[in-house]
Design a protein around this nucleic acid. Structure first.
Lengths: 223, 223
DNA sequence: ATTACTAAAAGACGAGTAA
DNA sequence: TTTACTCGTCTTTTAGTAA
């Protein structure tokens, strides 16, 4: 088992071209790159050589290093892991929260024709008049921050009978395969641990849920 | 500066899905993945949390972890480095060696018509009758091992006037922009620190080199 | 200028333990 | 079971030095 510190050193050597030929590097410079002393960098090089991850020619005025095939394999392994992480992602974020009672005013806003027509166009459904509110635990709050820049659609505000209704943004998501959407008001600073969801059906009923039950929301993304 | 051990832990959490939602993991299991004790794994998680690279909800019977955006950035940085290493490689290996005297027999073999016709077809040139021999230092020996599986072309043996001439393999390369090729006999176990090169011209003369001078050979690859 | 040793200081490790 | 603390040990680090 090669320790992480050694792999880090190996990676920097590769960055300097150690995969394609010999690279001249002093312990001092490697130390700078690794954020360690020159002594430690020197020890790293010795360790890498002992593990046959590099070969060296050391002279009094410096050293030449090249990465061996085994060293290359170690790096490839790490590369493969990161490829898996970033390229073969599931394509969905999971937000978990507990169902809470809303204030009831969501039903009013959500059913206003000026919004409904836009929901239909942007989301493909006419929402059940009411919102489904979740309180997120801290891990989910983190996920929420991540989705903040992904795939939101803008719903414009409008004026009706002398009153002005603000815009908002919606993000398509799903709960147990029912298409729905997270909705957040345009300007107001919404509490970050609460999300409001609209759906074509009454989710509480359809899913047989009541206040304080756990709910998992799936947000699909593509980037 | 995030230390390598922490990044390693972060990578494993990402592999478990920590980028897309919360992942449940015990210190024991993380320790198994990292090759450390559960205590150390626990410490890693605490350190990651302190650096705000993950958020956690810890309970008496386990913990849930999700990677923060900052944590994701750290991993992306590492990923970018490895991409650079493996995807934006120069496309050439560099072998450095010192010019040595050959045995003179190379000239004879290389000019045999049975070989020459194949050289012309495979390499696009008719070699100067003589070989250019290099002794490699240990870093270059390592490079030589790497190119062992890249782009060699097979030259068949033949029989002429009751004598049999063995096959060999050639690998196109260049020395100071002069196209040439490394040639190694088919079966015999060639010393690993010596390479023999053929070229359309007399390299010693064209490059103004003499015995013991340093020479840098470039091997192009594509895979 | 280098590398790499030695020795002292700092830090990390895992066993045991409590909650 | 868990997590995460303390504590003694051991490893790693850095400064100093020699080559």
């Amino acid at each position: 088992m090669v320790v992480a510190d050694d792999i880090q050193a190996l990676r920097h050597l590769a960055l300097l071209g150690g995969l394609d030929g010999q690279v001249r590097i002093s312990s001092q410079r490697l130390g700078d790159l690794l954020g360690t002393s020159a002594q430690t960098a020197s020890r790293r090089l010795i360790a890498l050589e002992d593990q046959m991850l590099i070969t060296r020619t050391v002279r009094a005025d410096g050293q030449f290093v090249t990465i061996t095939r085994q060293g290359e394999d170690i790096l490839k392994e790490e590369y493969a892991q990161l490829c898996q992480i970033f390229e073969e992602r599931s394509g969905e974020y999971l937000l978990e929260g507990t169902l809470i009672d809303g204030l009831g005013e969501g039903a009013y806003y959500v059913s206003l024709p000026g919004y409904v027509s836009q929901f239909k166009e942007l989301l493909g459904f006419e929402p059940y008049p009411g919102t489904f509110n979740l309180r997120l635990a801290s891990p989910a709050i983190e996920m929420r921050k991540k989705i903040d820049t992904h795939g939101w659609k803008r719903v414009d505000g409008f004026t009706d009978h002398e009153r002005t209704y603000g815009g908002c943004r919606v993000l398509a998501c799903s709960i147990e395969n029912i298409s729905c959407a997270i909705i957040v008001p345009g300007r107001s600073h919404y509490p970050e641990d609460i999300i409001e969801i609209i759906a074509p059906v009454r989710l509480r009923e359809k899913l047989g849920l009541s206040t304080k039950d756990n709910v998992c929301v799936t947000v699909h993304y593509d980037d």
